[in-house]
Amino acid sequence: MKHPIKTSESDPTFFEEIKEETGAEKILMCFNCKGCSTGCPVTDVVPQYNIKKLLRMSAMGLRDRVLNSEHLWYCTTCFRCQERCPEGVKTVDTMLKLRSIAVKNGVMLPAHKKIAEYVMRTGHGVPIDEQNRKKRKELELDELPGTVHSCPEALEEVRHLIKACGFDRLVGFDQQSLA
């Protein structure tokens, strides 16, 4: 093995944090059958990606290895592994918790940050553009959908909630720049 695990790498507080997600403690039930990774469509195309390994490393408290692994962001949340696990390990729910711990520690991918910013700015993760305004008109739909796009007060509500949840600070976004 190229990178043997040192006992000093294990951080018991990591598992405590993971356990905040109800059911995530079940990663301790994993008996290494590989049912999860065998059917994983991502493993199928990127063999190094292994959900079982990520979860077992998490159970062992390998905080830094897990949170800094780019593989944390490969999962499409297709739920196949969670459906198939004979031990009822909440593979996807736990992986999402791992991601949010990473985010809390400042690890987020620029593309995801951008989508979060779109929602803060416009209320939509994928806002309307010129081309699609035209397509809507051609289809005899209102040029702007009747969503936050047509409703400034609704957008204010969304921004208010984002702030109230501290999401703007989490993502490092300055609401002042919305003006």
């Binding site: 949340t77 985010v103 995801h112 969304v158 949840c165 999401f167 993502v171």
Partner: peptide
């Protein structure tokens, strides 16, 4: 009227469950 992004589970559920639930 005035509905927003659901919000997108891939980003919001990954980033912060509370914000995801609230929006």
């Amino acid at each position: 009227e005035g509905a927003s992004c659901c919000p997108a589970p891939g980003v919001f559920q990954s980033f912060d469950k509370k914000t995801w639930l609230t929006l």
